[in-house]
């Protein structure tokens, strides 16, 4: 089951962090259609957040058509964001691993790798949208 965590200094409202973490897990195939999300009580018992925060996140996910609440049973995943592209994740991850090994061999540290990835990623998205 998915486990949430909060970054209080990120400036992102807690309910949105929960929404994003569910979407992220769906995209990576970590949760699948039919999986149950943790109950509100379970989430507040670990995050120590207001129950309304969790309810709001779940309502938003419901509104997006990603989950559905079944009274008395819990909130269940009803859609997937991974679809056909999930099959490509494995090979892509392998290539990325090889690329990371090369970057390390060339002497890049964590921060340089992240900076290089971000800069390239942003330049590429700009080209794609231009």
């Amino acid at each position: 089951m998915i486990e949430f965590h909060l970054d209080t200094r990120s400036g992102v409202p807690p309910y949105q962090q929960i929404v994003r973490q569910v979407r992220h897990a769906l995209r990576l195939g970590l949760v699948k259609e039919g999986d149950r999300l943790p109950t509100v009580k379970e989430v507040v018992g670990t995050l120590a957040v207001n129950p309304n925060t969790v309810l709001k996140a779940y309502r938003e996910l419901e509104h997006e058509g990603l989950v559905a609440a079944r009274p008395g049973l819990g909130t269940f995943v009803t859609a997937t964001l991974a679809d056909a592209s999930l099959a490509a994740h494995g090979p892509l991850r392998e290539e990325l691993r090889r690329w990371l090994a090369k970057a390390r061999l060339a002497g890049l540290d964590d921060e340089s790798i992240e900076a290089l990835f971000h800069a390239t990623f942003q330049a590429a998205s700009r080209e794609a949208s231009a």
Partner: peptide
Amino acid sequence: CREFHQGLMEAVAD
């Protein structure tokens, strides 16, 4: 403090 808030929020949810 965290454990106290966890318990309190569980009770509110429940």
